[in-house]
Nucleic acid binder design. Sequence first.
DNA 1: GGTTGGACGTTATAACATAACAAATCTATC
DNA 2: GATAGATTTGTTATGTTATAACGTCCAACC
Lengths: 160, 160
Amino acid sequence: MLKAVDSRVEKLMVHSHRCCQGEVAALKMTPNRQLVLQLLQASDKPLSAYEVLDRLRAKGTQWQPPTVYRALDYLVEQGLAHYLQSIQKYVVCPQQGCEQFSQLLICVQCGQVQEASMDPALLALLTSQVAAQHFTLTPQFLELKGLCLHCQTSAALPQT
Amino acid sequence: MLKAVDSRVEKLMVHSHRCCQGEVAALKMTPNRQLVLQLLQASDKPLSAYEVLDRLRAKGTQWQPPTVYRALDYLVEQGLAHYLQSIQKYVVCPQQGCEQFSQLLICVQCGQVQEASMDPALLALLTSQVAAQHFTLTPQFLELKGLCLHCQTSAALPQT
DNA sequence: GGTTGGACGTTATAACATAACAAATCTATC
DNA sequence: GATAGATTTGTTATGTTATAACGTCCAACC
């Protein structure tokens, strides 16, 4: 009884992992998709779909939510962006060659995201650990919360 | 500029990690909270707040959303339940002694969740990996997606 | 017995996401 | 270049998740 949101997430998960593996068709970067990608690239933090929508409307467009979600979904499918499930926001994929298993380091203070590929030794250990519980991992992005370098050194400062 | 939902999540994160560490005051298990906890315990899968609400209303109550969220938030603060950010659902904490770093293994097919404490070697490796990117982890639950034993052996069956 | 703090009730609304269908546009083929 | 089919976009409405803001009740404490 997975609901609509789950099926969407799974679809995004599946497609996003074909990133940079030659499995995907040639990009069809329509003006809409380019616009959304540029907005994500211009942001130093993940953006929610409605933050993207607000910025587009601030530029004078008349976009509605479905148009934003379609463009975002496409970018995620093509591996050009990631959807961070744990905070429900979108970021550009900062690497040209992202892996099936990757880590997204999300700073809980400033909200910035770093992407890291997962070390094979770490993945092997993780896989064997969960296998002890009879569990098999599907390719995914690990969303890890913590503090980035900058926020470690200014940890007391509230962020606005 | 973290929004309301982020601050709520962070509050839940912080409090939920005091679970089973003697830092928490005596439980005040009011009838409302007991009812919600019993519903979570009776479910074999994580429930969304609105699924809990529906079940309560099916029992003849007149609950409104804030009442459900208050009870759920309390249970999570006290470490009796976990909030799964990646799927926006709640589960009972299946262990009496859950750790600051734990793993929640979420079956993408049937939706069931297993909880596992994180192996110290794995945590050390993970910590050192992210430290190479100047990143410090905060205590958290790793939400890992995959297939449980049952669904591995019946992987072709659609789930209803 | 006043008052204080926590829990709960209630109304309204914010924030996130999609269903459903129509219109436009692109593309392949004849 | 006509046209059929597929893809993309526009548009309206709605579904889903979560909280703000306020009021009431009640038990503990002085």
